[in-house]
Design a protein around this nucleic acid. Structure first.
Lengths: 259, 259
DNA sequence: TGGTGTGAAGCGGTTCACAGCA
DNA sequence: TGCTGTGAACCGCTTCACACCA
């Protein structure tokens, strides 16, 4: 099976830890909500609660961006929204192509979150000739044959793969050779890409399996505790883990689709 | 905004690190593929390549499960498949409900990965009365009013939330009070749940924003390097990060849907 | 006084390197 | 001889605790 990506040679992205980068979108979302309610400032405590992290972590995260807060007061909402947007590169528009317009691809195309902030669906691509020309979410589906041309004409650097597992690596190779350098992979496959290309993975079945693991553990505890004084049964609750941070290129984390 | 989950009180799940648990499904998938090709044994090196990790990590992961390998030979594929399945709790069937049958919910319902291993879509639930009775993926959609009854009648402990952000917390609360203890959340919201409930998050817009961050960095490098000897421009490539491990309950990682 | 910014300690995970067994 | 299993070093992230400043 293909694979063979190198591993993160450390070298934090421009000094900002990956774990922090992975949380910036979370903060941004919370800040946007505050902004819409015209809240002028927030404390690290409040914002952390809204984003689901603890305040120490949030302050540390922001410290990597610079000193954007005011001691004794908090952070200016609008200013932070701008700074984080800029840091994430959302002040520009990223054209995105979605390859594989099945149920999932269609769902992604219809997903309103794209347009809202920095992303624009530049094209939908599918291998099925019958799909060609058919509009999905108001955008006509184009055939895979034109993939390279579409990428180049639109200056696309971010691609979303929502094809079956079997087609994913091939699509990935074509995307990369056409110039795509960031890929969001929904197919349940380990993609092999050259250095310099980022791959992030979303895998539903992996997420479910992780939940099943903890679920099983809970069930085991109950039994142990319920039985007439069997064993110590002192196993602690699952409790809450935290963020999952990055997976960077190479990809290795969660994923959505077939198993 | 709601939040307020405690943070992982350490206490690794039954001695197995969360990061390892998050990789077990990956190994299982690779092993299943080998099994279908009737490969009897694999070395840590081969399996690691297929799963997209390095062999030291894989061996360390397996060492938490026990000594299932044979020195000088490798691992017995069938045996490992069984052990990992058992460890993940996939030897039993987990009934799952999907709430919110929009584009995404329908895609998830049609997703074949459920049935394949340990999961079964027990019911589809939507708030739209017009959807009630309509079959999606061969399963009739039921109305939200019956949520509690559905959960209890089917003994469901795992719920998938694919509703709009605004409805997610309410749906979550109802799922939890009906007995669900593991939630996979596709809505772009930080869910607040009591202790003992696991939440995992899948958020498309967060994934895209992380990619945009790296993409921007790459572009910056090129410019810096391309310009006529401007600055040192020694910023290293993004390179590859690795897995993203767990997010455990509380949820904090990636996610799919609106922004 | 109140809340940010941050050095330092703590912790989980990864990687190394090799002992040990088939 | 070859590959697993694992102690130990290493590394990055999280958490603590408090100095510092509006």
């Amino acid at each position: 099976m293909a694979t063979g990506r190198t591993h993160r040679p450390a070298t934090r992205s421009r000094g900002i830890p990956e774990a922090t980068v992975a949380r910036l979108p979370l903060y941004l979302r919370a800040l946007t909500a505050l902004s819409e309610r015209s809240v002028p400032t927030v404390s690290s405590e409040e914002l952390a609660a809204a984003a689901g992290v603890n305040s120490a972590k949030l302050r540390k995260d922001f410290s990597y961006l610079g000193s954007y807060g005011t001691r004794g007061v908090g952070y200016d909402v609008e200013y932070l929204v701008y700074q984080i947007s800029r840091e994430l590169g959302l002040t520009q528009d990223w054209p995105v192509v979605i390859v594989g317009i099945g149920n999932l691809g269609a769902a992604l195309a219809n997903y309103g979150g794209f347009a809202s902030r920095g992303f624009r669906v530049a094209a939908l691509i599918d291998a099925d000739p019958a799909m060609a020309g058919k509009p999905v979410a108001g955008i006509p589906v184009q055939h895979t044959d034109d993939l390279e041309k579409i990428i180049k004409d639109n200056g696309v650097s971010i691609g979303v793969i929502a094809t079956p597992a079997g087609a994913a690596q091939q699509v990935c190779d074509r995307l990369v050779s056409a110039g795509v350098t960031s890929i969001l992979n929904f197919a349940p496959t380990v993609l092999s890409v050259p250095d310099g290309v980022d791959v992030r993975k979303v895998d539903l079945s992996i997420e479910l399996q992780i939940l099943a693991f903890h679920e099983q553990r809970k069930a085991g505890e109950e039994t142990a505790a319920g039985d007439i004084g069997s064993l110590p049964a002192s196993t602690p609750r699952v409790a809450a883990a935290d963020d999952s941070a990055d997976q960077g290129p190479d990809g290795d984390v969660p994923a959505v689709m077939p198993a």
